[in-house]
Design a protein around this nucleic acid. Structure first.
Lengths: 233, 233
DNA sequence: GCAAAAGTGTTTCTACTACACCCATGG
DNA sequence: CCATGGGTGTAGTAGAAACACTTTTGC
């Protein structure tokens, strides 16, 4: 198998890519099709890849994201590795791996990353015959997912909630460059699983020096237009 | 090489084991000796191991700790993986690995754990001809360490400071079963890199329901004896 | 009796909570 | 003119911070 000199088939990276559509947190999943005993089987998987020889883990995760979205400068953070000996034992997953990689596969330890992207950026969601789509996080538990990807998403969500809690700057990775306080509050509430008071929230962001008001208003809304703000590091 | 059926030589675990001696945080390191070109070379390394085939990552880390200390029920938490392609390229490290494991070694991705242990427990610090010792964390940066273990310790320290901050229960993993408020405060201050006020600290722990006063006092101290407390979950 | 650490209260300040009404705009 | 979401202030509470002296014990 020629790929053995290019790939390290013992370690992979997987990315839990989060977005925010104004109402809910979403995760980017790749559609997967497997023909198993002449039956076509569809499920989803996380964007990921086994690592290349001589490739650093962070670089592998960046590569996956760039190939998937066409974007650079995405917030990306390693959060956990998954290496249970059973995680690559589902026959469907083995079949898919060996077809995709043209490699004999044993146990794969995967290093998982979370990424945050602005869902409004027109991302190229196609990559090597794969189609990616955004899904609400609360739908994910009812889906068929490859490997232990359901578990990875769950842990990734916990991790990113915690990160967004202690590091509010990261919230702006999920919002458009220009946003209203309502959008920010909606995101904040979603992340913290609460409904915060409008006035108290305004006070809170007023003392975040990195949220600056613009001389611009929302347009095309059927009610009073809200002021736009931007994030300034 | 016969070990190939037992070990997975592509993935390892390393444990950053923290202790507290009453004054400073310490880390447990293993003395390593290498004979290189007829010269004996000494340095230190983290306790660790490549994983066994069909062994989960957490199990591998537990195994390392149990073999090292003889203890079970140690707080242990995965915090990060390190997989730079250069981390196993130092000739000294390669030599040591191949001698120790009797295996040809390529790149190894390591999954790092932090562990907390009560330094007073008489641990069996010997294991397979290795000798382990406690070192102050501020001395570590000046030491010769194997692989990228200096980096791993640094990241582990950051991680455990954060964990101890958001989860005060973990402080008691580092203290003796019976402790004084001073000891607890000293640990707290070390972790948080501050010097807290004595009275405010007493008030704070008074409302921690899991710190309970005992009917016992310190003994053998050349001043007023302090009350002893215990941690009750 | 003195050195050394234990133990104890009050005040201030700050951060978070609760709560209700008028405003601007599009249709 | 009405429906929809935007935007504003005050009072109360709870938790953290500042701050100094008396107590106990061994030597």
């Amino acid at each position: 198998m020629p790929n053995e000199n290019i790939y390290n088939p013992h370690v992979s990276v997987d990315c839990v890519v989060f977005g925010f559509d104004g109402e809910k947190l979403k995760v980017l999943l790749i559609e997967r099709s497997i023909t198993e005993q002449n039956e076509l089987y569809n499920d989803k998987k996380l964007p990921g890849s086994i690592i290349l020889n001589d490739e650093d883990l962070d670089d592998a995760a960046s590569r996956v994201l760039t190939e998937l979205t066409g974007l650079k400068n995405i917030y990306l953070s390693q959060f956990r590795s998954f290496g249970g000996p059973d995680r690559t034992k589902n026959p469907r997953d083995i079949l898919w791996l060996e077809n995709t990689l043209q490699l004999k596969i044993g146990r794969i330890v995967t290093v998982a990353y979370v990424a945050l992207i602005k869902i409004d950026r027109k991302i190229q969601v196609k990559y090597e015959n794969t189609q990616a789509n955004w899904y609400n996080l609360d739908e994910v538990s009812a889906m068929n997912l490859a490997f232990d990807h359901a578990e990875i998403i769950k842990k990734g969500l916990e991790h990113i909630r915690h990160s967004l809690d202690i590091e509010p700057h990261l919230l702006f990775e999920l919002l458009p460059r220009k946003f209203t306080i309502s959008q920010l509050r909606s995101l904040y509430d979603t992340v913290h699983q609460m409904t915060s008071d409008v006035r108290n929230f305004q006070k809170k962001v007023a003392q975040w020096p990195y949220v600056v008001a613009l001389d611009e208003m929302e347009e095309g809304v059927p009610h009073r237009a809200a002021r736009l703000y931007k994030y300034k590091k």
